[in-house]
C-alpha cells in the first residue's frame, strides 16, 4: 500500500509476486525509452545517456531467426546485429535454469497483456480466462510452434525479417514511427482486445519466441513442484495460473506453456506453506 493524494492505494494483490511486477515495469519502461530514443536519434536528437539501439537489436528472437543464416554463411539477417545473438544465448541460459522467465518477467508485450487482463478480470470475473473450450484450447496451444517453424523457414529462405510485418511487439514500440506494417498493428490490436477475455493470448497461441522458450520447460533445472502430502486440494494454484496449467494435478510442472511467474507457489497463492515451490528435484 502506498499513500497518494491522501488515499491509500493498493499496488499489488495482497498475495502476489510483487517483485515480478516491478521487474516487468522496469524492462517495459527501459525498452519504451530506448525505442523513443531511437526515433529521436534518427533526427539528430536523443539522449546520450541511453542506448538508441533499434528494437530488432534488442530482441532475442532475432538471434533465433538468424541462426540458420549465421551457421551456414557466417552472416546475420538484415537489421539483426550480434546483440540479438547474445540476448538469445542469455535467454537460453535463463530458460535452462528457470524456464521461460524471459516471458514471465521481462517481455514487455507480456506485461501489457497482463495489464489489460486486469481490466478483463473486472469485466468477466470468474469467466475470465476460461472462455475457450478446453479441446479447442489444447489444440490451439501448439499453433505457436507452426508460427515458429514458418518464421524460421521464411527468414532462412528470404534473408529478411519477414516476421516484423506481423510482429505486435515491434508494433507496440514503433507505432509512431511509420515503420510498422498495418498487419502488425492489426495483430497488436487483436492481441490487446483478446486480452480482455483471455490472459496472454499472444503468448499462448501465437508467440514464436514463447514457443522456443517453452521447449526448455522439459529440461529446466528449477521447476514448479507440488508436494502432495501437504496439498489441501483447494485448486487455487490452478485457478491463479495465467496459462491455465492444472498445477493441482501435477507434482512437477513440465508444461510447455509455463512462464515461471511463480503466482501459483506458496509464496503467493497456495495457502499451504512450502507446498507449491520453485525448486530443484533434490531434498528441500
Amino acid at each position: 500500500m502506498v499513500k497518494m493524494l491522501g488515499k491509500r492505494i493498493r499496488l499489488f494483490r495482497s498475495r502476489s509476486i510483487w517483485v515480478r511486477k516491478v521487474v516487468q515495469l522496469f524492462f517495459l519502461v527501459l525498452i519504451a525509452l530506448i525505442a523513443v530514443n531511437h526515433t529521436l536519434a534518427e533526427s539528430g536528437k536523443g539522449w546520450s545517456w541511453l542506448s538508441n539501439a533499434s528494437l530488432h537489436a534488442l530482441c532475442p528472437f532475432g538471434g533465433v531467426v538468424t541462426l540458420y543464416t549465421f551457421i551456414t554463411s557466417g552472416l546475420l539477417v538484415q537489421k539483426i546485429h550480434s546483440s540479438s545473438l547474445v540476448l538469445m544465448g542469455l535467454g537460453v541460459l535463463l530458460a535452462v535454469l528457470f524456464g521461460p522467465v524471459f516471458c514471465g518477467w521481462v517481455c514487455p508485450l507480456g506485461t501489457v497483456q497482463e495489464w489489460v487482463a486486469g481490466l478483463g478480470r473486472r469485466l468477466l470475473r470468474r469467466r475470465y480466462n476460461h472462455l475457450v473450450p478446453a479441446k479447442l484450447d489444447r489444440v490451439l496451444r501448439y499453433a505457436r510452434y507452426l508460427v515458429l517453424a514458418w518464421v524460421v523457414y521464411v527468414t532462412a529462405v528470404s534473408g529478411t525479417l519477414v516476421f516484423s510485418a506481423y510482429d505486435p511487439y515491434f508494433a507496440l514500440f514503433n507505432f509512431w514511427s511509420g515503420e510498422v506494417a498495418p498487419t502488425a498493428l492489426v495483430i497488436l490490436g487483436a492481441t490487446l482486445l483478446l486480452s480482455l477475455a483471455i490472459e496472454r493470448p499472444w503468448c499462448k497461441y501465437a508467440c514464436p519466441y514463447g514457443a522456443f522458450q517453452g521447449l526448455f520447460n522439459r529440461i529446466r533445472v528449477f521447476s514448479i513442484r507440488r508436494e502432495p502430502s501437504t496439498c489441501r486440494a483447494c485448486s487455487l494454484c490452478t485457478t491463479q495460473c495465467p496459462m491455465n496449467i492444472p498445477v493441482d494435478t501435477l507434482t512437477v510442472v513440465r508444461d510447455h506453456q509455463c512462464i515461471s511467474c511463480l503466482e501459483c507457489t506458496s509464496e503467493a497463492t497456495c495457502p499451504a506453506a512450502a507446498t507449491v515451490t520453485f525448486s530443484t528435484g533434490g531434498k528441500r
Binding site: 542469455l90 541460459l93 535454469l97 528457470f98 522467465v101 509464496e267 525448486s279 528441500r284
Partner: peptide
C-alpha cells in the same frame, strides 16, 4: 533447493545485464 521470487528477480537482472557487460 528452493528459490524465492526476490532471488529469482536478482538473478534474472544480473544474468541479463551481466551478460551484456561481459559480451561488451
Amino acid at each position: 533447493m528452493s528459490l524465492n521470487s526476490k532471488i529469482l528477480a536478482v538473478v534474472v537482472v544480473v544474468v541479463l545485464f551481466g551478460g551484456i557487460a561481459v559480451s561488451t
